[in-house]
Design a protein around this nucleic acid. Sequence first.
DNA 1: CCCCAGGCACCTC
DNA 2: GAGGTGCATGGG
Length: 285
Amino acid sequence: MERHVLEAGIDLELTMTSGQTFNWNRVEGDFFEGGKEKFYTFKKDEPLIVEQKDGEIIAETPLSREEVEKTLGIRKDLDEIFETFPEDERLEKARREFSGLRVLEDEFFPTLVGYLLSPQNRIQRIKKLHDEIAERWGETVQFNGYTLRKFPSPEQLEATEEELREIGTGYRAPYVVESTQKVREGFGPEKVRSMEYEEAREEMKTLHGVGDKVADCVLLFSLGFLEAAPLDTWAKKVVEQFYPEIHASGYEETSRNFRKRFGNYSGYAQEYLFHAARNEVLEVD
DNA sequence: CCCCAGGCACCTC
DNA sequence: GAGGTGCATGGG
């Protein structure tokens, strides 16, 4: 893969395709679309933020480091983050291989729905289902001659369980129906954000379809909890194989051990290890 | 036909 | 809290 690392130390291509986000789309070779009226282009190797309103482009701004970071929700230098980790050859190897991989802070609701669809599913298929929901319930956005769909708001996503099953969500359909209902009724990210991490995870788990792992994903990828380390099948394999002293019988205890070892940016450690394992830079099993 | 995929809810004990 | 089971769907 051709790498293009921005001045801010972000490899957008790598980050957007790493499996953490379902909210961004490639429009043509070099475009990504966000959930808002903002778009990115790398045309002529000049990264731009393109902002528009009602289909009209109102601003094309060269990507300054600050703007990139603000728009993507990145608040911390990668160097500073890695400095907080203990000496670790696997993390260092992963970083050499995937430098520029960052953790984004996406919008809460689209992220929540994405991970509600994630249990026992493939990443590509989660993305497909996420797009299908946008297609059926989201409003259209015109951009530079393209017609795109935004992911629906909780109010717009008035889908029945049967309708969601029709598009192939399977047994996860009621997760989306019931959790969307709770968000409409006031379950909001603000309250969760104000909590301490472990309390926030418990709060997230009051939503139907949100267990430990999905809670950690939503906390890490949309609510700014960089200590949240989702222990998915890949992370578990890495832990069992390379960090047996961290491994415990239950999710909660393993999570505690993981955070004890890797600290306040455990989410980053997980993301690099996850990516390394999934791409066979770390050989598991 | 089989097995598996960013797990979860629900049920026991 | 720990441990087992059923679960929709699609791809290999």
